[in-house]
Computed example of a mutant assay.
Amino acid sequence: MGDKRFPPPLAMNPKDQCRIAYNAYVAAGGHSAYATTFYTRVRDLYVVCGKALNAPSQKAAEDVAMRNCQGGLKKWRLNTASGGCAIAASK
Rank of each mutant, 00 (worst) to 15 (best):
Ser90Glu: 09
Gly50Ser: 11
Pro56Phe: 05
Asp3Val: 10
Pro9Met: 04
Ala27Cys: 04
Leu73Tyr: 04
Ala11Asp: 06
Lys75Asn: 11
Asp63Leu: 09
Ala81Ser: 14
Phe38Glu: 08
Asn54Arg: 08
Val64Met: 09
Thr40Pro: 05
Ala52Pro: 11
Tyr46Ile: 10
Ile20Arg: 08
Gly29Arg: 12
Pro14Ser: 05
Gln17Trp: 08
Tyr46Glu: 13
Thr80Tyr: 01
Ala11Gln: 04
Ser57Gly: 01
Gly50Ala: 12
Asn54Val: 08
Tyr46Asp: 13
Ala65Leu: 13
Phe6Glu: 04
Lys74Arg: 15
Arg77Cys: 10
Ile20Pro: 01
Thr37Ser: 11
Ala52Asn: 07
Ala81Met: 15
Gly83Ala: 07
Ala60Pro: 03
Pro8Val: 06
Arg41Pro: 02
Met66Cys: 12
Ala27Arg: 12
Pro8Asp: 05
Leu78Asp: 03
Asn23Met: 05
Val64Trp: 07
Gln70Arg: 12
Thr40Gln: 11
Leu78Ile: 15
Val47Pro: 00
Ala52His: 05
Ala33Thr: 05
Arg19Ser: 07
Ala65Cys: 13
Pro14Lys: 09
Glu62Tyr: 12
Gln17Leu: 04
Lys75Val: 00
Ala33Cys: 10
Cys69Gly: 07
Gly50Lys: 06
Ala21Cys: 04
Leu73Thr: 05
Lys75Cys: 01
Ala35Arg: 06
Lys91His: 14
Gly84His: 12
Cys69Arg: 00
Pro9Thr: 11
Pro9Phe: 06
Asp16Gln: 00
Lys74Leu: 07
Val26Ile: 07
Arg77Asp: 15
Thr80Trp: 04
Asn68Tyr: 03
Thr80Asn: 05
Ile87Thr: 04
Tyr22Asn: 05
Val42Pro: 01
Ser32Ala: 03
Gly2Pro: 08
Gly2Phe: 14
Gln58Trp: 08
Asp16Ile: 00
Met12His: 05
Lys4Phe: 03
Lys59His: 15
Lys59Glu: 15
Asn13Leu: 11
Met12Leu: 06
Asn23Lys: 09
Met12Glu: 10
Thr36Arg: 01
Ala24Cys: 00
Gly29Leu: 07
Phe38Lys: 11
Tyr39Gln: 11
Asn13Cys: 08
Arg77Ser: 10
Ala11Pro: 00
Ala33Asp: 01
Gly83Val: 07
Lys51Asn: 09
Pro8Phe: 02
Ala28Trp: 02
Lys91Met: 10
Ala60Tyr: 07
Gly30Ala: 13
Pro9Ala: 12
Lys59Trp: 14
Leu78Tyr: 10
Arg5Phe: 12
Ala81Ile: 10
Cys18Trp: 01
Tyr34Gln: 01
Ser90Arg: 05
Ser90Val: 11
Ala88Val: 00
Ala55Cys: 09
Ala89Thr: 06
Cys85Ser: 07
Asn68Trp: 01
Asp3Tyr: 04
Met12Phe: 03
Lys4Arg: 05
Leu78Asn: 10
Lys91Leu: 02
Cys18Gln: 08
Gly2Cys: 15
